[in-house]
Amino acid sequence: MPLRNETVLTIVFVAMLLLGCNAAEKLTSDQTVNSNADTAKANTPASVPNDDGTIPSGTGVEKEKPTAGKANVQGKAFFNDKGAADVEVKLCKTFNQFGGGCTGETFTAKTDAAGEYVIKNVPPDLYEGLTVRVFNTPFYVFATSGVIAAAKYNIESDKTYFAPDSHLFKNDLKVTSPKAGSKVAPENIELKWDAYPEAAYYKVSIHADTTTGAETPYDYMAKRVDDPMVALDKPLKPGAYLPKVEAYNANDRRLAQSSNDLKFSVK
């Protein structure tokens, strides 16, 4: 999917039918991980969510014991398989992923140089949101151990809860053609974008706005390509289309995706 100013803007694809993360803002060039920072080793996550939808604690080494009667929440954030330093992490008592974001009691922390964080002295309770901010942007990702929505976390007294690792990705991949708002002929369409740093390959999807008469080209749903362009081998039906491009590193970690304001029209 990623949250925007406490409002959820989902920043993960759901079987590649994602509505988009509403990431209209451009990320600036200084929104990068300190490559000289120590890389945090991943926690061992719990295998599957519990039947009640809570995410069980993984295992790890406590950085600090919780205060008596309280709990700590400990986890790690990564970008491009390196620890993501100085990013905000938030634990929320209640959470609405469709609007409103965090409400109720909220606890925050920031990651260290290795991407590790500890949210200290948390009252034991059931919490509905654990989010990690995507650097200094207004977008967040969930710490959900493979499930693609907000989750619940049962925080127990006198224990450290080991949260699932969070793998950040940015929304700054730049599509250069077709231009947003442009009208193009149905044949020989080429989708092009700027090569993304350290990307090993890309996944390309073209979503049709069927209300305009457009038809989804299913050959281009999460299509893997190595170069920063793809030439469509079939014409598109007239209507409006939204391209989506994602960049991945050699370990299949998503690095970035294009924004969702790139709709173009076929004549």
Rank of each mutant, 00 (worst) to 15 (best):
Phe98Ile: 03
Phe169Tyr: 09
Lys267Gln: 08
Asn43Ser: 04
Val204Met: 02
His167Trp: 15
Met229Pro: 00
Ala150Arg: 06
Asp86Glu: 10
Glu116Arg: 11
Ile55Gly: 02
Ser57Glu: 10
Phe13Pro: 12
Ser259Asp: 04
Glu187Met: 01
Tyr248Gln: 03
Val147Leu: 08
Ile206Ala: 07
Gly75Pro: 12
Ala84Pro: 09
Lys244Val: 08
Tyr196Asp: 00
Leu236Ile: 09
Pro178Gly: 07
Asp81Pro: 04
Glu64Ile: 11
Thr131Met: 12
Thr39His: 09
Gly104Ser: 05
Val175Gly: 06
Val266Ser: 02
Cys102Val: 03
Ala247His: 09
Glu62Gln: 15
Gln257Leu: 12
Glu25Phe: 05
Glu64Asn: 06
Arg4Gly: 13
Ala185Gly: 09
Ser205Tyr: 13
Thr7His: 15
Thr131Lys: 12
Pro2Arg: 15
Ala231Lys: 15
Asn80Arg: 10
Lys41Phe: 08
Val141Ala: 13
Ala150Lys: 06
Cys102Asp: 12
Arg4Pro: 07
Thr32Phe: 08
Glu62Asp: 15
Asn154Leu: 15
Ala240Tyr: 04
Phe139Pro: 00
Ser182Cys: 05
Tyr218Thr: 10
Leu232Tyr: 06
Gly69Lys: 07
Lys170His: 09
Ala68Ser: 13
Lys76Asn: 14
Val245Ala: 12
Ile119Tyr: 10
Gly181His: 04
Asn154Glu: 15
Leu191Lys: 02
Lys26Phe: 07
Pro238Gln: 09
Thr176Val: 10
Ala163Ser: 15
His207Asp: 06
Phe142Trp: 14
Lys234Tyr: 03
Thr210Arg: 02
Gly115His: 06
Leu19Val: 11
Thr108Met: 05
Val134Pro: 01
Tyr153Ala: 05
Ser29Tyr: 14
Val132Tyr: 09
Ala180Asn: 12
Gly115Cys: 09
Pro243Val: 01
Gly239Ile: 14
Val245Thr: 04
Thr210Trp: 03
Pro66Glu: 04
Ala113Asp: 07
Leu126Lys: 15
Asp194Phe: 04
Gly104Asp: 07
Leu173Arg: 06
Lys183His: 00
Met221Thr: 12
Leu191Ser: 01
Met221Glu: 11
Tyr201Phe: 14
Gly181Tyr: 10
Arg4Gln: 08
Gly104Ile: 02
Pro2Leu: 14
Lys41Pro: 01
Lys76Ala: 10
Asp112Ile: 06
Val225Pro: 07
Lys192Asn: 08
Tyr248Trp: 14
Thr137Leu: 02
Ala37Arg: 12
Asn121Asp: 15
Gly69Gln: 04
Gly58Ser: 13
Gly239His: 14
Ala71Asp: 00
Pro2Met: 14
